[in-house]
Design a protein around this nucleic acid. Structure first.
Lengths: 194, 194
DNA sequence: ACACTACCAGACAGGTCTGTATGGTTCAAC
DNA sequence: GTTGAACCATACAGACCTGTCTGGTAGTGT
């Protein structure tokens, strides 16, 4: 079976069709919403046959989960790639990612919050992917706050999660240019130096 | 024309069919999402003929706008009905509405944020209804903060808007029982007593 | 008696949705 | 050269979508 041949290992090198499908789905789901984009459009813009699509993803929901899991991996990698700094600088850098994302012209809010608005079953695979993302983000903030000496890192972390969610909505719906100053002001008031 | 006959004024007494349609649409749109609910289901559960529906609402989007505008009116009336108290007590009461809403078993987040996730055109009537709601809410908070002596009421109001949006998401996706304490802690830190 | 309004019931058109099935092409391994 | 995997193209089924249309009924004002 030549399974030991590492130069053509299919697991380490994602196949073109799957990659194109996921890229196209990511672009369309994020820009237009999930229910608003059909499989026919995704396969047409990806240049993939329908049977090929269904050989890679058993159903549309599997594609949605793959889309969210990839966004989650990208976010975690970006945070992991941040230079090691004191906890407060790390928190500032992590929250700062909201303003840089919001400045992009095609910003349309948080992919996870948008998906949660469309998927109402709390035990569905889509919602579980969203839960995993939120739990990871809360944990990152909590650990940094604990290292910073916050007396109640769980509470402060939840407040920073709420602030992050809300600033993403402000960047999407109100004015993204106001976000950098709001991050600074919000952190200054929510972090307990008092 | 008998337009002056006030006892049968059709504007002051909403007609049963329209009322039933709006009630049913509100329940289904909120619980399941907007794109996920079709006209056929709404008219079936409301017990209204399709022609009657389209005589009251020229299109589905008009029904969506009517749904959001009614939610907006309800929210404004609830705030207007609050007893007159000092600014900080008023802010506490307004934010406190998030926790009471979140405790309801069928809570599914903010209707406006959920609708914004599904409607991507920023100049569509749906998004304009959302904009109006957010501008009103920001203005209410800003005026209370100014009366409270906040030196930068616009910034603090935006932070409280973000906190409100985020706490609604926490109540929907994470744990609604944590929200009351987060409101108290968030207000204590964001309002400048310092 | 007559007209008018509001409403219900259901068929219909034209399109889109997810998912399955059929058949043909390319390419690499052996 | 043969086999098999991966892929493309397309047709199809069955359901659902929005919106229009026809026709019938009940009540109300004149």
């Amino acid at each position: 079976m030549a399974k030991s041949d590492s130069s053509t290992d299919p697991a380490s090198a994602p196949l073109p069709a799957r990659r194109r499908l996921l890229d196209t789905a990511t672009r369309l789901f994020y820009a237009l919403g999930i229910h608003a984009v059909g499989i026919d459009r995704i396969i047409a813009e990806a240049g993939v046959a329908k049977a090929t699509f269904y050989s890679h993803f058993p159903s549309k929901d599997d594609l949605v989960v793959a889309y969210l899991e990839e966004q989650d991996r990208i976010g975690r990698a970006a945070v992991a790639a941040l230079p090691k700094l004191p906890p407060r600088r790390m928190l500032s850098a992590i929250l700062g990612r909201i303003s840089t994302a919001g400045m992009a012209g095609d910003f349309r809010g948080c992919p996870f919050l948008n998906a949660a608005a469309e998927y109402t079953d709390p035990v569905s695979p889509v919602r579980r992917a969203i839960d995993a993302r939120r739990a990871w983000y809360h944990g990152v903030l909590r650990d940094l706050l604990a290292a910073d000496g916050d007396p109640a890192p769980e509470v402060t972390a939840s407040l920073l999660v709420a602030l992050s969610d809300g600033l993403l909505e402000i960047a999407y719906l109100d004015d993204p240019r106001s976000v950098p100053a709001l991050i600074e002001a919000g952190l200054a008031r929510l972090l307990v130096a008092r």
